[in-house]
Design a protein around this nucleic acid. Sequence first.
DNA 1: CAAGGTTGCGCG
DNA 2: AAAGCGCGCAACCTTG
Length: 601
Amino acid sequence: MGRIAPGRAVDVGGPGAAGADPGAAGPASASGDRRWRIGAVDLAADGTPIAEQVVEPAGFAEFVAGRESADRPRWVWSDSPSWYPGALAAGVRVERAHDLRLCHAILRGARSVRDRDALAAAVEWDAASAASEPDSGPEPVAALFDLDEPLASPGEVPHDLDAALAEFSRQRAALASSEDPGRLALLLAAESAGGLIAVELRAAGVPWDADEHDRLLESELGPRPAIGAKPERMLRVADEVRTALGDARASLDSPPKLLSALRRAGIDVRSTSHWELEEHEHPAIEPLLRYKKLSRLLSANGWAWIDEWVRDGRYRPVYVPGGVVTGRWASSGGGALQLPRQLRPALRADPGWTLVSADVAQLEPRVLAAMSGDRAMAAAGFEKDLYSGIVESGIVSTRQDAKIAVLGAMYGGTSGDSGRLVPRLRRGFPSAMRLVDRAAEVGERGGVMATWLGRTSPPPAPEWAELQAGASLPGATSRDEERARRAAREFGRFTRNFVVQGTAAEWALAWLADLRLRLAAIGTVESGAAEATASGPAFARRPHLVFFLHDEVIVHTPVVHAEAVAAAVEASAVAAGRLLFGAAPVDFPLDILIAQRAVKE
DNA sequence: CAAGGTTGCGCG
DNA sequence: AAAGCGCGCAACCTTG
């Protein structure tokens, strides 16, 4: 097992031939980019370059395939979305990578790294990822850059070999200077695996039954209206609302106008949100809530959404690994993280294939129990529903109360039911509560917290510190003090939640990374059997991940492998728990469903 | 009229 | 209007 750093190496031609292949921006697509050849360097275990070779862009996928079957190296590259899609499109997967861009972001903020100066100075690595938009087209690199600086692209990390080697060297030094290099190395590996998985998810796509989606829209909204027109069902419901309000011209789509219409009708609300409307008795409320529901469905996931995001039976959202400060993934386009449950029936396996859907029950509180070593909390959830276990321990009296208490503990709830119930949890699970309470205290003082593996929270903004400093000055008013206290508590709630949400994200990455390798080992179906051709050459004949959302995954698999996939999903959850928390007596039970659709019939 | 802010609601 | 964290997106509305 070695490492290989590939990077754009040699300028072999003039500008102008760039980007003939619109499918991928960046070096991996370089089959169409005649300006560059690729330099690939083998690295020794200590990171020193051993052997360099030049690879023609058109031969890159083949080169990767050769090394994968020979010695399965860890690829050290600038940014997975820039290198990997081209290989995948040629049917070539990689086993492991070190994503310099993602790892830079972790290391330069990591509190446990003693010397971060060199990383912080390498600001070019703070850039966003290359756009993974399929239709973004070639970038005008040559037009914007002097020939003395030909290797950078606007808004992207560097892709040339020298820059990659230099950055890798900085990262190795930073890791070595860490107080806990083992954990941090684990995090970097998990984060990088996530980078590969995000590319793979996009390549495979979510199998999406657009006809089913369309039927669902029609049954809710009525037939698809002409462009710019509202669906007939919405118009009818809107009329019901206006009649009930006694206001034939009331606007329902503009919150300010709706608010005044409601108040004119004698409904004393301060906003038009669902939660407040629900509290009032008036014949207009019920149809109005129904209208809002329909309106949301139409604007967020209506026919326009299908047209934009679903093609050839695949929904391809854009994932952003590490896009959230806590380490959770974000998304930019397609709304993968907000797919309404209502639409799940449209998530449907290809013929001859099925879906294995799995989610973790109460991931975050279990992670809290594990990282705090709270044996009572671990026991409450062991081999059972955690909330019911808390009730059985006699800490609270109903499952709902247990849930409110636990969420309040992790989010910093102080009022209402939460404020009443959290103290009971503090008595029952002192270790767990001590961990989150301390995290909150640190935040209130303007400090930073780290997750289990060492991802560090961002420090408060300068304005925050000024607010705090100003509040203790002689001339400060009581309003200044109150504002400062409120901001301090707010930041405390952020750091309180950061450690739990962030560590849960690490567990989920470890789960995914392990699962990805197990799926690769399950094997393929023979050529000619039902193939998922729309999933692309790398996945058309083998089980593959198609969806990930914080604590749940969906695998698209040939029917014959469904049981093996379900077993792999389970095994990976166990492995993730062991990898992060060793022998801690905490389990991570899954709800697993094997079905054609990702929802119970 | 484009950019940026606010509101409301979808997800965990 | 959420109470109590983290997000993205569409629509409306204000600002320049």
